[in-house]
Design a protein around this nucleic acid. Structure first.
Lengths: 101, 101
DNA sequence: AAAATTTGGTTTATAAAATAAACTACTTTA
DNA sequence: TAAAGTAGTTTATTTTATAAACCAAATTTT
């Protein structure tokens, strides 16, 4: 009986991105984080971060609330249950690529 | 003293690709593998596999030998020491994105 | 023995992603 | 009030991933 191939689990393309993964990684641990904080922690440019936050939001992986802190605009992000699940699944899928796990 | 950001290690873009990662993962364990085998194991199309093998070769992560098996052409791939190192570094970098490792 | 099909690929075209640069709108400081 | 800074968004460019089309040689079918 031959091997059926497909020993590898597919990697969620929404998470398989350096910046989006970093954002999710942060949000997993902090309850909520704003744009400025995420930008500082990831070292990303504003433009890139803005785009990637949008994608995570549209995927339902994070929740985004735009408001104000004093008079300055503030974008606050937090992870959703769906996002948590997706992250866990992604990490699990990754393991299928790493011999000896 | 504030956090300096950059808690995340950069992910080698050459390995941060589903198919290239799968190819490397296989080659880590098998001494050598030919095009047909890699195609079956990964489920990739020929075109995609051909392109990604090229990239890994030009990066020096794998060695590619084109010859014949009987009368049919055969492309044999094997991982290099450099490739092994890069893979290990990639996995290490990945860990920086996964809370609780 | 031609014609059709399969094998083992490569090349080219297209769609999707990542990223930076330019821009907007408002606020604070000089 | 002009200049500079803050917090982003939009747009344009480059890179990537992927599939589709192609090719040459080998094999099979008629």
């Amino acid at each position: 009986m031959p091997e059926n191939g497909k020993q590898f689990k597919p990697l969620d393309p929404l998470l398989h991105s350096e910046l989006r993964l970093a954002v999710m990684s942060i949000l997993l641990e902090v309850d909520s984080a704003d744009f400025v904080y995420l930008k500082a922690e990831t070292g990303a440019t504003s433009g890139n971060l803005s785009v990637q936050i949008d994608k995570l939001q549209h995927a339902g992986y994070i929740e985004v609330t735009k408001g104000f802190k004093g008079k300055m605009p503030q974008t606050v992000c937090s992870i959703t249950d769906c996002g948590r699940d997706a992250f866990a699944a992604y990490v699990d899928a990754l393991r299928s690529y790493i011999p000896g796990r």
